[in-house]
């Protein structure tokens, strides 16, 4: 062991030689909120993801790093993109993973989730990836479980790995995040992607604009240090990044928009509106998108769209998160 221990020390030395203190580990053993990460930790995850990204270009897209680790993907809400992305990430790291889909909506939050957690404990998982309709569910699970918990989206609270992959995609395209004008447009009220992205983009120094109809605006959002507007032209003006959010009809109880066509007319991203942004703008969407509602088909399929990059980068970012959390000690 002596030699490989020594290499760990050497790596730390290398970093010291290259510049000011850089983090080599995450402080928390869970990933619940981007708010729990400092800018150095976010950068560590993105840098690690760069290294993970290379693995997908190999003939054998698998490394033995998490051999013998058991990871449970516990999904209480339907998800294709996020679940398969985590699953591929787990397989590429050689972890043993299993999917527990609890889509029957009779599962209420609170004791039932904790009961499920107790039953899962019997399988002795090292990590649990949780998607839940209730905001705060991963936090609750983290307190009850011996396993490390990764939030894969909780209610309208947060979706940290989405924000990380968005940050990764922006950095890969633009080289940096600080100083960029990022306009986030759409259903702000119900979006966990928005909350995670606000925290991440603010930590990394972006100039953030949000835009949506008054009924879907978050009250007091300016205290996040963002500019808010109800006019999409103002949000798009000179933007480096246009991030579109899905109209989440499944979370709407009541009438937030008169009709989807009306919404598109006022807030949909059309080729004409893209013209206002910088000539090298990138257009992002966390998916699944509603064509003709928040975004025009020609824009979604157009040259500025990086949506498929986002999906591809999601695997590398999740590999980085799984790898970094797998080494953190159990503090219970």
């Amino acid at each position: 062991m002596a030699s490989t221990d020594a290499r760990a020390t050497a790596s730390v030395d290398d970093v010291a030689a290259q510049g000011p203190a850089q983090r080599t580990t995450l402080r928390s053993r869970h990933l619940i909120s981007i708010g729990d990460l400092d800018p150095e930790e976010i950068t560590l995850i993105l840098d690690t993801a760069e290294a993970m990204k290379e693995i997908e270009s190999r003939p054998i897209k698998k490394v033995p790093a998490l051999r013998g680790k058991t990871i449970v993907n516990l999904f209480y809400e339907p998800s294709t993109r996020t679940r398969t992305s985590f699953e591929i990430a787990e397989k590429r790291l050689s972890a043993d993973s299993l999917n527990v889909a609890a889509t029957g909506s009779s599962v209420a939050k609170g004791e039932t989730l904790l009961d499920t957690a107790r039953n899962l404990e019997a399988m002795a998982p090292d990590m649990i990836v949780l998607r839940h309709a209730a905001s705060g569910a991963p936090h609750q699970l983290a307190r009850a479980s011996r396993a490390a918990v990764i939030n894969a989206g909780d209610g309208t609270h947060e979706h940290p790995t989405q924000a990380l992959l968005d940050g990764f995609t922006i950095r890969a395209r633009k080289g940096h995040i600080a100083g960029l004008k990022v306009a986030i447009i759409g259903d702000l009220l119900h979006s966990r992607v928005l909350r995670s992205n606000l925290l991440l983009l603010r930590a990394l120094g972006a100039e953030i604009w949000v835009c949506g109809p008054p009924t879907l605006m978050l009250p007091g959002i300016e205290q996040f240090g963002v500019r808010a507007t109800t006019r999409i032209d103002e949000a798009a003006e000179g933007a480096d990044v246009l991030m579109m959010l899905r109209i989440q009809r499944e979370r709407m109880r009541g009438h937030f928009v008169p009709s989807l066509r009306e919404y598109f007319n006022v807030y949909g991203l059309t080729a004409e509106r893209v013209e206002r942004a910088k000539s090298d703008v990138i257009i992002m969407h966390p998916g699944p998108m509603n064509r003709g509602v928040e975004i025009a088909s020609e824009v979604a399929d157009g040259p500025y769209s990086v949506m498929l990059d986002q999906v591809a980068n999601g695997v590398a970012v999740r590999m980085a998160v799984l790898y970094l959390l797998a080494g953190n000690p159990d503090e219970m």
Binding site: S11, T24, A51, E54, V63, L93, P329
Partner: peptide, 24 residues
Amino acid sequence: DITLYRDDLMRQPVGPQPLVRRTE
């Protein structure tokens, strides 16, 4: 970068994960 292939990777009971660098 051989970090992800180390034989002691998940054996240290506590301690940070070694930094992964890019293989090129």
